[in-house]
């Protein structure tokens, strides 16, 4: 294992270096490197602190209730965040010309659909919370 570890690591770096030679003469290479590093920096230094901080704020602010509220906020919020992240171009209307040229369609519907989806996830979560609350109450009164 003493020698396996450095050997495997060097092999990995060698593959990456060799792969990079494919785009060595590509005028887009600097932009590729920027996007590669920006993806890591924005994930580790932006997205992770953002959702961790939001979750900490939620834990601090959520009222102490008999049926805990936090997961009924977390689930629709994560659903909204995930769909926003994945389908961002359509939702914010970015790349409309290429979209039109490829599909013959505009990007008009996506924002409204996403907002409806987020509202639906929040409504379902609230409804489940209400049911849990009622059941907890009736469990107390019948006891």
């Amino acid at each position: 294992m003493r020698l396996v570890r450095p050997a495997v690591l060097l092999l990995c770096l060698a593959v990456a270096g060799y792969a990079a030679t494919i785009v060595l003469d590509d005028p887009g290479l600097p932009r590729m490197l920027v996007w590669f590093l920006a993806a890591v920096v924005l994930h580790d230094g932006g997205l992770v602190p953002l959702y961790s901080g939001a979750d900490r704020a939620l834990l601090a602010l959520a009222p102490r209730t008999r049926v805990p509220l936090v997961n009924h906020v977390r689930v629709p919020a994560l659903g909204a965040g995930l769909t926003l992240l994945l389908f961002l171009p359509g939702i914010i209307g970015q790349g409309g010309d290429a979209h039109l040229g490829a599909t013959g369609l505009d990007q008009q519907p996506y924002l409204g659909r996403w907002l409806l989806l987020v509202a639906a996830m929040a409504a379902v979560s609230a409804a489940v919370y209400a049911v849990r609350l009622l059941r907890a109450r009736s469990a107390v009164t019948t006891r």
Binding site: V15, A16, Y18, A19, A20, I22, V23, D26, G28, L29, R31, M32, W35, F36, F87, P89, G90, Q94, G95, A98, H99, G101, A102, T103
Partner: peptide, 19 residues
């Protein structure tokens, strides 16, 4: 989603990234 905001050739970049 036809959003080419990255401004480089998708095929080459995605291929190199894969390796």
């Amino acid at each position: 989603q036809y959003d080419y905001v990255f401004g480089f050739g998708f095929y080459a970049a995605h291929y190199v990234g894969a390796w």
